[in-house]
Amino acid sequence: MSGGVDSAVAAARMLDAGHEVVGVHLALSRSAKTLREGARGCCTIEDAGDARRVADRLGIPFYVWDMAGAFQRDVIDDFVAEYEAGRTPNPCLRCNEKIKFAALLDKALALGFDAVATGHYAQVVEGTAGRELHRAVDEGKDQSYVLGVLDADQLARSFFPLGDTTKPQIREEAAARGFAVAKKPDSHDICFIADGNTRGWLTERLGERPGEIVDEVSGEVVGAHQGSYGFTVGQRRGLGLERSSLDGSPRFVTGVDARDNRVFIGTSDLLGVRHVVGQSARWCGPAPSGEVRVGAQLRAHGEEIPATARVEACDGGEGQGGESRLVVDLDEPVRGVAPGQSVVLYDGTRVVGSATIATTAR
């Protein structure tokens, strides 16, 4: 129970369904702030209090579980390391994979509970081969993308009671139940960067590392930066360049070379990606066999693109180990796809699985 409206209604619905429900708020910060800043951030002392008041109204036990250490190690430290290596991670997927449906679920099972229920907008459907993860009915709120890291065993012990309802309906239900959080703003952006300034937050931790901004086509040095970790493929704003000196056309980040601390820029025609290779694949059910037609989504609120996917054995190259890799060929180019992001595969509304993008090609 995050202290928001979604997890409040999720708890109420699980109780209505006849389950024995215990509310748990995760303390993910070693020095939690007292108040939220509007819709930014989460896991504040105020949020814990909101969750407790909902639990009291429902008449269920409520606990705060300290997972700050695991969150620091598996989410925040991973986030910093990925940006430092020139990649663009999605911390929400990592949190679901390592915290909510791993550390939290493991602790719950050890204490004798059967499952974890959350306020995510997704649906679990009983299929012929077991439980399946599907998109929510509210397309605008669908969160199946950030749940694409769950495997079959985790799905078997997960409930998403809100997947068949739209967000306005959830707020109406919360108000009808008398929850004070009915109109509370949704949290967004990265929860541990409350002011939304990712580059500034990373600079505090990694320090300034001056380097060159290079035109990808000409090879000319056209500017300077204070750390390649502050850039991601597809980025247009914050380049610090005078457009007039670059023929007046807008420029975008086309690549980040962390080893040489260089940022490459180019025109929009250089951004389209048609080929993606992913590693560390996770499957929500059986892994696909052979070449399959799928829908591929490459960012949390991105469009689903028709694609062909296949699983291949790795050649043992750098960073690959001996594991397999997922190869995805997109029917149409997608702009701004960066290594470190995740590709999530769909068969209709069903989530097939996901992988972390290692390389891309145009």
Score class of each variant (00 low, 15 high):
Asp6Ala: 02
Ala309Cys: 04
Thr232His: 14
Arg13His: 10
Leu15Glu: 04
Ile213Gln: 03
Ala51Asn: 07
Val292Trp: 02
Gly178Gln: 00
Arg199Tyr: 08
Pro61Lys: 01
Glu82Asn: 13
Gly322Ser: 12
Val181Leu: 04
Arg87Asn: 15
Gly59Ala: 05
Gln72Ser: 12
Asp260Lys: 14
Asp153Phe: 11
Gly316Ser: 05
Ala129Trp: 10
Gly130Thr: 03
Phe101Thr: 07
Leu202Pro: 05
Ala32Pro: 11
Ile190Glu: 08
Gln226Phe: 07
Arg94Phe: 05
Gly49His: 11
Gly285Lys: 03
Thr165Phe: 15
Arg53Gly: 11
Gly49Phe: 11
Pro185Trp: 09
Gln341His: 06
Arg262Val: 07
Phe62Leu: 02
Val343Trp: 00
Val328Glu: 00
Pro333Lys: 00
Thr359Asn: 10
Ser268Glu: 15
Asp153Ala: 14
Glu332Cys: 10
Glu172Gln: 11
Lys100Ser: 01
Gly207Phe: 02
Phe264Tyr: 11
Asp74Lys: 13
Pro89Ile: 08
Gly295Leu: 10
Cys284Val: 09
Ala70Lys: 11
Cys191Lys: 15
Ser289Ile: 12
Gly69Lys: 12
Thr232Pro: 05
Ala309Asn: 02
Ser144Phe: 04
Lys100Glu: 00
Gly223Lys: 05
Ser144Met: 03
Gly219Trp: 10
Gly234Leu: 03
Glu37Asn: 14
Gly348Leu: 04
Phe252Ser: 04
Arg36His: 10
Asp257Val: 02
His188Trp: 14
Ala11Val: 07
Ala309Tyr: 00
Pro250Asp: 09
Arg325Val: 14
Thr232Met: 13
Ala11Ile: 13
Pro89Met: 06
Ile190Arg: 09
Lys98Arg: 13
Val54Gln: 08
Gly272His: 11
Gly127Ser: 06
Glu216Ala: 12
Arg262Met: 02
Glu172Ala: 13
Leu326Ser: 03
Ser244Tyr: 13
Arg362Asn: 09
Asp215Gln: 05
Ala175Trp: 07
Pro161Met: 04
Gly248Val: 09
Val263Lys: 00
Asp153His: 15
Tyr346Ser: 09
